[in-house]
Computed example of a mutant assay.
Amino acid sequence: METIETIGNSNPVLPEGYSLVPKGKLANAVTCLEMREKPEAIAAAERSDLSLARMTVPDLDTYRQLFRAIGEEWMWVSRLVISDGELADILRDPRVEIYVLSSGGTPAGMIELDFREPGACELVFFGVTKETIGTGAGRYLMNHALSIAWAHPIERLWLHTCHFDHPNALSFYRRSGFSPYALLIEVADDPRVTGILPRTAAPHVPILE
């Protein structure tokens, strides 16, 4: 790793290709992945301890509560910063499908599939609650996500993940049949500094103020 000189000074000397991220901001490395063909076999086996149901008339408070429960640890904020009207327009569009995973009658995960682009589907949000990680619920949920998505007349299923996500997320998506096709860098306000998320969220990501 190259040395970053005088980083505490007002004019640090940075190696070529580096950019200093301002305090209060976050730099997020995003990987986009896609699947161009329906998998030959999708084992969406049922489990007695898990169930999946579509949220047919999404309630905004219920949706945001689940969104936080799953994504707060991984810096999910996009659905928390848009207005109720904007969120309602998305969730109540018939081309957007939301499914809730339940474990023992308690919400434990979600899938959000967006079919608004003809011939394509974006797996916008996918995740399980912290308590459910490591139980096989993620594989159960992904197999159902693939079955649901490819039951539609699509030619491409895609998603994106980032380095704020679970450390196994990228490898999980690749094992599920997705292939990386683009890398992006996003610089945005730290939601823990702006107050959108609590300061205890995502402890694996340092806060710089």
Rank of each mutant, 00 (worst) to 15 (best):
Glu40Asp: 11
Ala88Pro: 01
Arg68Ala: 04
Asp93Gly: 02
Thr135Phe: 11
Pro167Ser: 07
Arg68Asp: 02
Ala151Arg: 09
Glu155Met: 11
Arg36Ile: 12
Pro206Ser: 01
Glu72Ile: 06
Trp150Ser: 12
Gly138Gln: 10
Thr161His: 12
Tyr18Ala: 14
Val128Met: 05
Ile82Leu: 03
Glu209His: 00
Pro12Tyr: 13
Ala108Thr: 03
Ser176Leu: 08
Leu80Lys: 06
Pro22Trp: 14
Leu80Cys: 05
Ala201Pro: 00
Gly138Ile: 07
Asn143Lys: 08
Ala137Ile: 13
Gly177Lys: 02
Glu72Gly: 00
Val205His: 00
Lys25Asp: 01
Thr106Arg: 15
Arg174Ala: 06
Thr200Glu: 12
Gly105Leu: 09
Pro39Val: 04
Ala188Val: 07
Val57Trp: 08
Leu66Thr: 09
Gly119Tyr: 14
Tyr173Phe: 15
Glu122Thr: 09
Leu87Glu: 06
Asp189Cys: 03
Pro22Met: 06
Tyr140Ala: 07
Ala108Ile: 05
Ala27Gly: 08
Glu2Asp: 14
Val124Gln: 13
Val13Asn: 10
Thr129Gln: 05
Ile148Met: 10
Ile207Leu: 04
Phe164His: 14
Phe115Ile: 06
Met75Asp: 00
Leu20Pro: 00
Ile98Thr: 15
Thr132Tyr: 07
Asn168Leu: 13
Phe126Gln: 09
Ile7Val: 12
His160Pro: 01
Glu122Gly: 02
Thr62Ser: 14
Leu50Asp: 10
Leu52Gln: 07
Glu72Leu: 05
Glu73Pro: 01
Ser171Cys: 08
Met75Pro: 02
Gly105Trp: 09
Leu33Ala: 08
Glu122His: 06
Thr161Gly: 10
Glu122Ala: 13
Asp49Gln: 13
Ala120Glu: 14
Asn11Thr: 12
Lys25Arg: 15
Ser171Ile: 11
Asp93Asn: 15
Thr161Tyr: 14
Ala202Glu: 00
Glu131His: 12
Ala69Asp: 15
His166Cys: 05
Leu141Gln: 07
Arg36Glu: 11
Val21Asn: 01
Ala202Gln: 01
Met110Arg: 10
Ile7Glu: 10
Ala29Pro: 09
Arg92Asp: 05
Arg174Gln: 15
Ala169His: 11
Ile82Cys: 07
Arg175Gly: 09
Leu123Pro: 06
Asp189Pro: 00
Lys130Pro: 04
His204Ile: 01
Ser78Ile: 03
Glu112Met: 10
Thr129Phe: 04
Gly8Phe: 12
Leu197Asn: 01
Phe115Tyr: 13
Arg116His: 08
Ile90Phe: 07
Ala151Glu: 12
Arg116Glu: 10
Leu50Met: 11
Ala151Trp: 09
Val124Glu: 14
Gly195Gln: 05
Ile82Gly: 00
Asp49Met: 12
Trp158Asn: 04
Leu101Thr: 03
Val96Tyr: 05
Ile4Gln: 08
Arg116Gly: 07
Leu52Gly: 09
Glu122Ser: 06
Phe126Cys: 06
Tyr181Gln: 04
Asp190Gly: 01
Ile148Phe: 14
Glu97Phe: 01
Thr129His: 03
Pro94Cys: 04
Phe67Pro: 05
Ile82Asn: 01
Pro153Trp: 13
Arg64Lys: 11
Asn143Leu: 04
